[in-house]
């Protein structure tokens, strides 16, 4: 028998227990380190991409004799290198924003239908189909757009131009199926599933208590959605739209196939041709010279920055009313 006092014994026992509860155990440490490592890795990858884009872009930006931001020319490999991204920025932003405007209401409608209106079995099936849309490769959308949708849009474009030409967006001298509007519709279909499935998940998370509170006040189904569901899902809907916008901004092959040719800055949505950052890179990178490739990477850098800004803006919108959930 050791001559341990009661206090010593208690201290020893407590020490043993607190050690067990501390985070010093191997499993905790390993998990903590791997989590931290993943976080750091993400930042390193982001930084590496940014550095790569900047380093590769600098030679072209130095050689550029035109204003990089405002010029509409794109002749980086000419003896007197002149190029600018005005046209690309315009085409990218216009087609993506238009796609977002077209896709968001439909996506939210689908999500509401699945979450609140459809009978259980139909809802499950429909949710599955929407998710399946997201799995279709973009080259398939591009081919479908070019082979099937563009010919159909020729007629639509003519109709819109003839009957609604007084609306400036549908005006212009020439119209055709291979226009920004067609590209935007294809983009809208492509970003529909991601917006729809995220908003559906958010809607399903609306607390039952909030829905019942609205019902007990005598709200109809639509009023319940307006009072309890949409406000609750607001930030989720914004995040979902921004993810969709991000995808639309960066979408390459479908847009490149549908638009085909480049054209200048024009708000006439039915005018054939158009160009975006990603489509321009895909169409011209293989044939570009040294400065040309560098110029394309510089345009990629701008796309990177735009996407970043879009995401930051979304976060700002979401956090502005943070105290209200």
């Amino acid at each position: 028998m050791t001559s341990e006092t009661l206090e010593q014994g208690a201290t020893r026992a407590l020490d043993g227990r607190t050690r067990k509860m501390s985070t010093g155990r191997l499993g905790d440490r390993l998990f903590g380190l791997s989590a931290k490592g993943s976080g750091i890795l993400l930042l390193v990858i982001m930084a590496a991409i940014a550095v790569f884009l900047i380093v590769k872009a600098v030679p072209a930006l130095r050689a550029d004799k035109a204003n990089f931001l405002t010029s509409q020319e794109w002749n980086p490999d000419a003896a007197q290198s002149r190029f600018g991204i005005a046209q690309l920025t315009f085409g990218t932003v216009l087609s993506s924003v238009l796609a977002l405007i077209l896709a968001t209401p439909v996506a939210v409608g689908i999500a509401l239908f699945i979450a609140f209106y459809a009978p259980r079995r139909l809802a499950d099936g429909l949710g599955y189909v929407v998710d399946l849309l997201a799995a279709v490769p973009s080259i398939v959308y591009g081919l479908w757009g070019l082979q099937f949708f563009v010919p159909k849009m020729n007629g639509v474009a003519t109709f819109l131009h003839d009957d609604f030409g007084w609306i400036p967006l549908f005006g212009g001298d020439t119209v055709g199926g291979q226009c920004i509007l067609t590209a935007s519709i294809v983009l809208a279909i492509m970003i529909l599933p991601i917006i729809s499935s995220i908003t559906r998940e958010i809607f399903l998370q609306v607390p039952r208590a909030n829905i019942e509170a609205a019902l007990a006040l005598g709200a109809t189904r639509w009023e319940v959605i307006r009072m309890a569901v949409l406000p609750f899902g607001r930030s989720g809907m914004i995040s979902a739209s921004m993810l969709g916008l991000g995808r639309a901004l960066g979408e390459t092959i479908a847009v490149a196939l549908v638009l085909g040719t480049a054209s200048g800055i024009s708000l006439h949505l039915l005018k054939p041709g158009g160009n975006t950052f990603a489509a321009n890179i895909a169409n011209t990178f293989a044939m570009a010279g040294k400065i040309g490739q560098s110029a394309l990477i510089a345009s990629g850098l701008v796309l990177f920055v735009i996407t970043l800004l879009v995401n930051m803006a979304a976060r700002a919108v979401i956090s502005r009313r943070k105290e209200f959930v």
């Binding site: 607390p207 208590a209 909030n210 019942e212 509170a213 609205a214 009072m227 309890a228 406000p231 609750f232 607001r234 209200f324 959930v325």
Partner: peptide
């Protein structure tokens, strides 16, 4: 359980 609308 008290259920005020959280967004209001």
């Amino acid at each position: 359980r008290p259920n005020p609308f959280p967004t209001m």
